[in-house]
Amino acid sequence: MQLLTSYKLGSIELKNRMVMAPMTRSRSFSKGLATDLMAEYYAQRASAGLILSEAINISADAIGSPFTPGLYTAEQVESWKKVTDTVHKKGGVIFAQLWHTGRVAHSVDRNGVLPVAPSAVKIEGMQHFTSQGVKDYETPREMSIADIRQTIADYAQAAKNAIAAGFDGVELHAANGYLPQQFLSDSANLRTDEYGGSIENKARFTLEVMHALIDAVGGDKVGIKISPLHPYAGIAFDDPTATYTYLINELNKLNFAFVELMKRAPTFPLLPHYPVDDEIERFGKLVKQTLIAGTAYTRDTGDAELEKGIADLIAYGAAFLANPDLPRRFELGAELNTPDRATMFGGGEHGYIDYPFLK
């Protein structure tokens, strides 16, 4: 089974090709700090070849959801050390996913401050989970050039903070409707300056952030997550193939570790003008770096994906959430625990660190 074979990611030897996908769990309840409970959660899953952490806010301005951690204060950096230390003691490898939510946010969890975005375009047709319950989205404030430059600097500083906290590297979250994808998209970006209009201009923000991350910590410690056809949070492209072909070709000119390519979640309908073929075939073949394929893979479909020779690693989300010993279960063909969706976001130990291991 290829899933259980080792893989060399830059200078890091991964013990298998199974990646624990980034998953927001909303269990950081004070000052964006990592907790002992979070350290136990990640350490339990250290048998993954690579752990990608939950999304971590790069600044106070990046915050979109309640009870999510940060990497922008000295106290936060210190708190993450217990997580990375416990993962490393278990023989694991962990990258920090760097997060700016942009317009996928609400002022009630931002001290009354409106979220920022490429343009003042509100998300319609869905609501946001806040500390005060579900609320309609607000119209964000359009970012100035100074805001953009500050945000890029915040990404770079958060990357340095991640390495100081003991992470093995960082991943730019440029998927799922968050800030980098807002800049990329035709539905969220109505700008007419150098960050809007053409595909080249709309891709500028993501590429500048990647340059900043590589400069900050070295390309062997940097990855990026993209989701070309996933329409979450009102993201739409006139021509997603043209946009992502350009972005991937530009990324190919950079020296960095990996691209995580997230397929559209089955629960989201494909937009009528989007291509219906497989995203790994369409976009993955373009990627020159290590390719991580993700979304709804099983033991058998993940291994079959590796057999095709396009993807190098396979990301598992809910399966790792519910099965801390997932590689062992795959090895034995054992039954899997079922994830409890009611405890995925927020709460304490239940549905977090109490999923049973194989006996």
Rank of each mutant, 00 (worst) to 15 (best):
K285F: 04
R299K: 14
F268D: 11
A265E: 14
P269N: 14
Y316W: 01
F258L: 15
H273S: 14
N249H: 10
P269S: 13
A265C: 05
D277F: 02
D277G: 12
A304R: 07
K288Q: 15
G317T: 05
L270G: 05
D312E: 06
R264M: 04
E307Y: 03
F256C: 12
V259T: 14
N255G: 05
F256W: 10
K253Q: 13
D278V: 07
F268E: 09
D277Q: 15
A318D: 11
I314Y: 00
Y316N: 03
R282H: 08
L306S: 07
P269H: 06
E281L: 11
I314R: 00
I292S: 02
P272A: 07
G294Q: 06
D277I: 09
G294W: 00
K285H: 13
A265K: 12
G317C: 09
K308F: 04
D312P: 09
L271W: 02
L271A: 12
A319E: 08
Y274F: 12
E260F: 03
E281P: 02
F256K: 12
A265N: 14
E281G: 05
N252Y: 08
D277K: 14
F268C: 03
A311N: 07
D303I: 03
D278Y: 02
A319T: 03
A315V: 01
G294I: 00
D312W: 02
E281M: 10
K253D: 04
